[in-house]
Design a protein around this nucleic acid. Structure first.
Length: 145
DNA sequence: GCCAACGTTGGC
DNA sequence: GCCAACGTTGGC
């Protein structure tokens, strides 16, 4: 299993809206960036992901998983763009802020910090565990600490 | 609302 | 294939 981070501006698509979709999940449409698309193409079912609120909030608010493999983006006829579907798994008991991530030495290589504008990004296992710990979750079981 | 960073487009 | 112009993202 691999780990990822999805960014969303909460006034466009929020964690609350994502959770409301439940197990059905939702297409992560609208990505028009090759790097982000390429990451989605490599995702597998059940890969886990942080859900991050950009612009407002600036914090990791929840955990999601890939619920459908990359397929053509239904919001465009342009064949270049694919995307996955994701579904919410659980809240981050205590959201982890960008500020906290930046202040944590072991997270200084996170794409969230180094590739600010990348909206779908890979997360290393160590980073996943650390962020979960900071948010009050066991990174493996996803049970509250 | 500003603006830095950076991805994309298009002329040459 | 270079690079200037332009558009967008996203932190502040």
């Amino acid at each position: 299993m691999r780990y990822w981070l999805f960014k969303s501006e909460p006034f466009k698509w929020s964690w609350e809206q994502q959770k409301a979709k439940g197990d059905a999940g939702e297409e992560w449409d609208g990505i028009r960036n090759y790097q982000a698309r390429n990451f989605m193409r490599t995702m597998e079912l059940g890969d886990r992901a942080f859900f991050y609120h950009s612009n407002e909030g600036l914090e990791i608010v929840g955990i999601a998983e890939v619920s459908a493999l990359s397929a053509p983006d239904s919001t465009t006829d342009d064949e270049r763009w694919d995307c996955v579907h994701i579904r919410a798994i659980c809240d981050m008991p205590t959201p982890v802020t960008l500020k906290q991530v930046k202040a944590t030495e072991s997270l200084s290589d996170m794409s969230l910090v180094t590739s600010m504008r990348l909206s779908v990004q890979p997360v290393k296992e160590e980073e996943w565990m650390e962020v979960c710990r900071m948010g009050g979750l066991d990174g493996k079981t996803l049970k509250p600490l």
